[in-house]
Design a protein around this nucleic acid. Sequence first.
DNA 1: GGCCTAGCATACTAACTAGTATGTTGACCA
DNA 2: TGGTCAACATACTAGTTAGTATGCTAGGCC
Lengths: 215, 215
Amino acid sequence: MRPHLRRVPSPKKTRNLEKSRKEILDIAFGEIYRHGFQGVSVDDIVRKTSLTKGAFYHHFPTKLDLGYAIVDDVLAPLTLARWVVPIGEYADPLEGILRTMERNIGGAEPALLRTGCPVNNLAQEMAPIDRGFRKRIQGTLNLWIGGLEVHLKRGQQTGFVRRDVDTGQAAHFIVMVIEGMYGLIKGLDDPEAFNTLLTPVKDYLRSIATLSTRK
Amino acid sequence: MRPHLRRVPSPKKTRNLEKSRKEILDIAFGEIYRHGFQGVSVDDIVRKTSLTKGAFYHHFPTKLDLGYAIVDDVLAPLTLARWVVPIGEYADPLEGILRTMERNIGGAEPALLRTGCPVNNLAQEMAPIDRGFRKRIQGTLNLWIGGLEVHLKRGQQTGFVRRDVDTGQAAHFIVMVIEGMYGLIKGLDDPEAFNTLLTPVKDYLRSIATLSTRK
DNA sequence: GGCCTAGCATACTAACTAGTATGTTGACCA
DNA sequence: TGGTCAACATACTAGTTAGTATGCTAGGCC
């Protein structure tokens, strides 16, 4: 054996670039999610971390760069994992979309609903203020919409979604509905509003389904 | 004549409580609308005003109180004036809702759409952070929803809206759609998205209209 | 027409802000 | 095994923040 050739990085090492970066990103994401980007200071974030300000600025040149990294490395993957990937588990994408809504919003903790949707929060706060945020949020939303559209097209080919449906339009509308639901539930501070809002959404999904698969 | 008895307050007077308050509220509203509540400082607001910090704190004990006043005295009336009152001009409330959407969103300046909806902005930013904001935003949204419901009920009695429609549910859904539209247009930074989103919305409005009035 | 207070203006503070300057040390490699 | 540099830690700064303390004066009232 020549263990020195295929060296595995020691898990005990006290310095780890990637791990530190991830820690900062995760903590910062949570804080910004709850208090807004402008409502959180670098010191706030650093304090909740096991690291210090030196580490922070070693990883991110400015606070703005941290924000950008959060959109790219946290928000975008999270959104896909929550709202696009799970639909793949369903033969009928429309059922997948409905079930995902029920799970992610209907089944969420009231405390979490009060905080709303991470993407929407950051979008509403920072998109009009900063171009960098705007472009990245735009990208994330388009990933989301594009991902949905893929599933809808699949549904058209497998006979679940009507062929005459404009899948791009439908994907836009569905994302709008999800953001709108999050927003109104948060604004009204009423998780029960989800059920009220869901009925018309079900009707919409039924309206773009093929007759044979309507329930 | 005894002019000293029915004294009209001189319009030239340099000190005017209500006028000063209104000036502060209006300027503050605009700044907060564009930069967010946490993104605007009291000094920022005062600087854009013809007044000073002394005047500001004579009118509002804290910055938070200013925020509350903006919701109560600016946002709530503005929302009703923009999204509820105009519907009264139409015999068919569903047509009124559609036309109002087209005017307020479809016909808005792109620069304005980039900034989104004032209510939604403040709601998404401040509702989860502060209880005072939460309660007031909740109140404003309920005014909006309630106002819409009145028009929908009127539509039911005048034969424009189907009798079996849950007007509360419909009002909730419509407000959600408006907030969602604003949000997505802002997030995508694409005013054209309005037209994409409008088609399914038209379908929804048609679905709750009586057969005889459908277009 | 003088007085009194509401309606401000000015000057200040303590705490916080993003960012920097500089020092320290762990880990890898020859 | 010691040198080197990446990966941090510590200490600082200049500017900003909400809020205060205090002073001034316009204008209503008798």
